[in-house]
Design a protein around this nucleic acid. Structure first.
Lengths: 225, 225
DNA sequence: GCGGGGCGTCAGGGAACCGTCAAGACGTCC
DNA sequence: GGACGTCTTGACGGTTCCCTGACGCCCCGC
């Protein structure tokens, strides 16, 4: 799910946009003026920004410049001004796209998708988790121990991946069962014991005294860093 | 100086565009139909493509798909159709921007500058993937092994191309089936086995013990660097 | 001391998956 | 119409994986 920051001083438009975007699976953050927009961009780290040029405090171009000072997040400018040099100026300052009001909702969303797609390409994602002598590569779906690969079955991998994505946090038994085996298996706690044992045999130095894959009796399992 | 490829079947428009762009410091290459556009993109390697959707031979969407198969070059679509789903479709297929005729020259150039700027960020792209003794040329859609060309069928190529574009990453079975055969075939896992075997026979030194085209049972396939 | 619940371990049979070969269906080009 | 290359589909053997049941251990309360 991608996150979008909507910046506009018109509450009605912001609300309408937010509802529509959320209905299509976006995570939405909003800001009503330039200053809070810059702040929200820094703290929320959205995947794309929708920016109205007519803000009460800062000029829209200042917001673009403020963002471009430290981030390459795609910016889609929204403006009522149909003609003129505004488009040229905004684009040359670093905006990625320019949509004039009134606009079609599906077109705006298509442009947002295009902007996010480009943003993802340039950003190399972090997909490796290191735990002691283990390296868990979430992209390749592979585990290596002391440099050499360890063969995991699909179910074992699914189990380990879930724990790795919650590194250091306790994952409840039912959540593991639901996400690995499906909702119907939420109480088959025996599966957990079998597969935890198999993983330990493959990943732990001393399977009888696990260091990384730790059991919390009655609660769940944790992958300890 | 940036290079732009202008694709349009209307000679007058092409000439007007070319003159204007050259006057502003662009290097301009032109093509009048889809086929020559794809060829010109491969040989000239422009920094950005201006593409009219109404071409005589290919559908505009096919041209976009043909380009996106091997390059991330920014595409700015030019179209007379003001409304409708065309915009959404083109953008979702991989176009970067969409400008409707009639358009202001300075706006188009500003959008081209924005597109080129983004393209430069992601760095020079590679269209050749080298894997052991194999060389996969994504632009020319050719594979060579130890210097001599290997003949692939369209389906085999499509399979290999997908893996090459995700070099070193595990590509899930359903994604391969969807992108090569279409959404309706997402569970025909038998196809995967047949075509993986064919590719191995053509590309691997010892097809029974593959080094490059590796299976992850129950998950998918990986092209190993 | 005794019983019970939760956990870890082990092993076997059925099911799923993979690789392989080959024959028929389909479309295209001469 | 025939030859060719390509795609689809079926069958088979070998391997791996998943589920399941049985057993022992430990901790805890009675």
């Amino acid at each position: 799910m991608s996150k979008v920051l909507v910046v506009d001083d018109e509450p009605a438009l912001v609300r309408a946009l937010a509802i529509n975007l959320r209905a299509h699976g976006w995570e939405v953050v909003t800001a009503a003026d330039g200053r809070s927009a810059l702040e929200a961009a820094a703290t929320e780290r959205p995947d794309v920004v929708v920016l109205d040029l007519g803000l009460p405090d800062l000029d829209g171009t200042e917001v673009i410049a403020g963002l471009r000072g430290w981030t390459k997040v795609p910016i889609v400018v929204l403006s009522a001004r149909q003609h003129g040099e505004d488009k040229v100026e905004a684009l040359d300052l670093g905006a990625d796209d320019y949509v004039t009001k009134p606009f079609a909702m599906n077109e705006l969303m298509a442009r947002l998708r295009a902007a996010v797609r480009r943003g993802e390409e340039s950003g190399p994602e972090q997909t490796e988790v290191a735990v002691g002598d283990l390296v868990i590569d979430l992209a390749r779906k592979r585990v290596s121990r002391g440099g050499s690969d360890v063969r995991l079955t699909p179910t074992e991998w699914s189990f380990l991946e879930l724990l790795a994505r919650n590194l250091g946090r306790l994952v409840p038994r039912e959540q593991i069962l639901r996400e690995v085996w499906g909702p119907a298996y939420a109480h088959e706690t025996h599966y957990l014991r079998v597969y935890a044992a198999q993983l330990r045999r493959k990943l732990e130095a001393d399977p009888a005294h696990p260091v990384h894959l730790v059991t919390s009796p009655g609660l769940g399992y944790t992958l300890e860093p």
